[in-house]
Design a protein around this nucleic acid. Structure first.
Ligand SMILES: [Zn+2]
Ligand SMILES: [Zn+2]
Ligand SMILES: [Zn+2]
Ligand SMILES: [Zn+2]
Lengths: 133, 133
DNA sequence: ATGCACCCTGAAGTCACTATAGGGTCAAGC
DNA sequence: GCTTGACCCTATAGTGACTTCAGGGTGCAT
């Protein structure tokens, strides 16, 4: 299959596929007479793995590690589980941060009666005079 | 005050302050004989505003807009509220995404009994054979 | 022969900084 | 007076994970 087909099959853009190849995540495929990339089933499977991992929020470095671990089915999966648990912990941190931000913003939004900048509770929250709040 | 003092006063790194100047967010201050930046109170106030906005997760483009709106106290604050509401909506989207990811990851983590890659429920979730799931 | 979808490479742009290289300034202490 | 150290300066490159752009070539149908 050609790169466009592989992209459609995996939900990945052509540019991203070439980027993954340059990054060493996806091995360079054979070329046809026109110098077009020609992919095999193994490429489709590997790219699917990468796509799913990215969709689950793993970084490319984590994906690299997951691929390495996944390549040997006899290995212990402890490493995979550690990477995943660490990733969950990161997500928890982000969730906590975002929730705090959201709370602060919504509180301000709700209390703002306008009508002008001078009375705006959001601007007030941002302005240094309110620093003692 | 010099750039280091300003940085300590606002919790911003010296490099970030110079970056904000280059980006036009903070006006270029006067220089002393040694070509050091010399900041006034107005700079401190403006940088505080930027810092608070960034801490609340606004992008620099949004900060630019907020600064522009905040500069005229007679203006309606509708624009500010719109930017904020939009930002909250973005946060809500991110929260939903992260919660979904977290759920998927934790579900897999909990169900993985190991001991090898061949049995790992996380690798299974990533592998294309499980695509029909 | 012309259009169009598709493919190629290499380089630059995105965001919000951070880091690095290679210097200059200033006050204190020996 | 000379070094040490903290601080300041500019200009440039690096980060992550791509996306976009410039400037082409290929393959098939009309
Ligand atoms: Zn690693
Ligand atoms: Zn308001
Ligand atoms: Zn704008
Ligand atoms: Zn496992």
């Amino acid at each position: 299959m050609k790169i466009g087909e592989l992209g459609r099959a995996t939900g990945t853009s052509v540019e991203t596929i070439r980027f993954y190849e340059a990054e060493g995540l996806l091995s360079a495929p054979a070329r046809n007479a026109a110098n077009y990339r020609v992919y095999e089933l193994a490429h489709l499977e590997r790219l699917s793995f990468i796509k799913r991992s990215r969709d689950l929020g793993f970084t490319l470095d984590q994906v690299r590690e997951l691929l390495r671990l996944a390549d040997d089915p006899g290995n212990s999966c402890a490493g995979v589980d550690v990477i995943t648990a660490r990733h969950v912990a990161e997500i928890d941190r982000k969730l906590a941060d975002l929730n705090a931000l959201r709370g602060e913003l919504v509180r301000r939004l709700d209390s703002c009666q306008g009508p002008t900048i001078a009375d705006c509770r959001i601007i007030e929250a941002l302005s240094p005079k309110s620093a003692a709040e």
